[in-house]
Amino acid sequence: MSSQDSLPKWTSKPCVMGIDEAGRGPVLGPMVYGCLYCASSYLKQLSSLNFADSKTLKEEKREELFEDLKANESIGWAVDVIDPRELSSKMLNKVKINLNEISHDSAMGLVTKVLSMGVLLTEVYVDTVGDPEKYRIKLSEKFPNIKFVVAKKADSLYPVVSGASIVAKVTRDRALREWALEETAENMHRNFGSGYPGDPTTKCWLEDHKHSVFGFPTLVRFSWGTCTSYFKDVVEVSWESDKVDEDGATGGSGKKQLRLSNVGITTSKRKSEEIESSGKGRCKFFQARKLEQLSRF
């Protein structure tokens, strides 16, 4: 999604960009990174457009401002919509990617995208995720020709970031509103609420849509701590990849565990391993293929 088909002339002059995110906290729906850019010489006028931090604006006002900035030929924008499935799966990977990293990657992706469109970015303002200075260094190393300003509450300090926050927030709200639920179970409804874990409507939706085997529809970010409170009576699922983690190929404590099990101390984990078809005690050919002899079942 992008506003520019053919690049306006001002993009070859030094440009400023703001980056902000929406939907980082919610337990469901996508997280959206948005950016807004304009020529440095346009900054003063941009300030007069009354972009405030999107959170302080009413929804109708945000929608209105978004339509305004889309129509404004002196402004460009872009978004990156990160699917909740992607968020959950990255955070639950064997090699886990945390939300900060996902956020950094998305922001850098936007910079790359705008640069590759041919916009001469010289300054980029970013609302921080994690430590501002570390984040600034990371960004500067990746894009040495751009001056980065990384700050807390950048969305209320810099109009260009306020603008980006409107782009992100409106996109996130629309995406959630129009979300096509993948699941086809009966009695599903779309009263998602805001998606924030504390929102009573969201709580209701989560309660209505939990499933003892599947957990939740894929709109939900399974990696969020909030989900655990809904999973009290859920069917237990244990993953091969988690077992590898626990047995610990990494770290000292892992090694200790391994040694204990070699000595023959049976923990509940060992038991669960033993129900696996392992080919244990058989010739290597069978072990490698986890083929077990089954004389009765």
Binding site: E183, V213, V235, S238
Partner: peptide
């Protein structure tokens, strides 16, 4: 699946697993 699901019984698989 690469996991153990501690459940035996009918389940609306095709509605959730896509």
């Amino acid at each position: 699946l690469p996991c153990t699901i501690k459940f035996d019984g009918p389940c609306p698989v095709s509605h959730y697993f896509k």
